[in-house]
Amino acid sequence: MNTPTPAHVDGNAAAGVLREVFAVDLTAAVGQCDNCGCAVVLAEARLYTRAPGMVGRCPGCQAILFRVVRGPDRTWLDLRGLRCIEVSLPDS
C-alpha cells in the first residue's frame, strides 16, 4: 500500500529558494504596486528615510510599496504593498 504524499512540507524546504532571493540586491528587482498595478524598479521608489523606518512609495500613485524597520539586532520587512517581485538571477 502506498503512503499518501503529504500536501505540504514545512517551511524549511523553502530555505534554498528564499536565500537565493534575499541574498541579491533587491533595488534592481521589479515589483508590482498592489494599489495601481504599475511595475516599479525598487530603486525608483520614492524613499522616505527621515522617519522611524524606511518607507518606499510608488512613484505613480504614492501608495506604500515596502517598509523596513531596523532595530539594533533585528529588521522588520513589510512588502504587502507589492503584489510580486521579479528578481533576475545571474548565470541561470
Partner: peptide, 8 residues
C-alpha cells in the same frame, strides 16, 4: 525640532 515623515 526635527521633522520626520513617512510620506508626502
Amino acid at each position: 525640532f526635527p521633522v520626520l515623515s513617512a510620506g508626502p
